[in-house]
Amino acid sequence: MLEVRNLSKNFTLGHNLLARLGHSDQIIQAVRNVSFGVKRGEIFGIAGKSGSGKTTLGKTILRLLEPDGGSVLYKGSEIFKFSPGDLKQYRRQVQVVFQDADSTLNPRQSLYSALEEPLLIHCVGAKKQRQKAISKALEQVNLPYSLTGRYPSELSGGQRRRAALARALVLEPELIIADEPNTGLDPVVSAQVLALLLELNRQHNLSLILISHDLAAINYLSNRVAVMYGGKIVEMIDGSMFEFFSRHPYTRFLQGFNGDVILQNGVCDVHAKSRVSDEGCVYVACCPEARDECFKASPELTRVAFGHLVACHRVHGPGR
């Protein structure tokens, strides 16, 4: 349904910043050569480090950012070549829930008009039907209808998050890119939001790209999981295998198998320690199992088992 091929996105830091200090490395490679596919009715989970490019990837797929390389195919056609009409259609079928709910909701728009806006843009239904769609979406995220008159500043953090989710649901899209849909929610509501996504997936064949730091959520929902680090996918694995059969050292760190790394190495911030370098593995500065070759060559994302890809020299063994 959606296919991402060798997608790359760089940010050039402003002239005011590094240029002033005379630094040469002014380019942040936020997404580097990422490829994956999402089938219809599939839940594709993306986990990864803060700043590893997950949000940027999501925005590029929606064509909110122009890529520096690669392509995204939606139902077989290239989205970066869409005509304005096609693009509008695309943005109806593919919805996004931004990580930053505060920037999605217009502070001067009441909750009702925020939810009505996408329906109006896409000319959906008469007033009655719109109202019905809105109350259904609100009910799905457990927000009482009586909140519709309020402005974003009059809602709590978690209520705003759910409002942003309702806004994505209201058009009944085919694919949702959900960037951290359950953060900032208490455990009960968070579990319900995840259960809702799963139900939509099962009953309406909704496809979902789920970006989250919450491994339990990823584990709970995903059919396939990709783990990102430094703009690259370092591991891609079947959802049911994720918990016990992952092999990349970073994935295993995330899962807490080698929690002592953090004590040994202190902080592993890609920004701080190793600006993402073109040489060697992206994870080399923090990897407890790094060897010589890891500093020299970047490991390729290679198949190690059915439906399981890993980019790590250690996993591929010597001689690769």
């Binding site: 909140l147 759910r162 259960a195 584990n219």
Partner: peptide, 26 residues
């Protein structure tokens, strides 16, 4: 109790309660 229990939902599990729906007016 409910809060602590919802913490540990598992692959394939489900939750039926609808919480978070108080509007704090009524």
């Amino acid at each position: 109790r409910l809060l602590l229990k919802s913490q540990q939902f598992k692959r394939g599990g489900s939750i039926s309660i609808t919480a978070g729906a108080l509007d704090m007016v009524t």
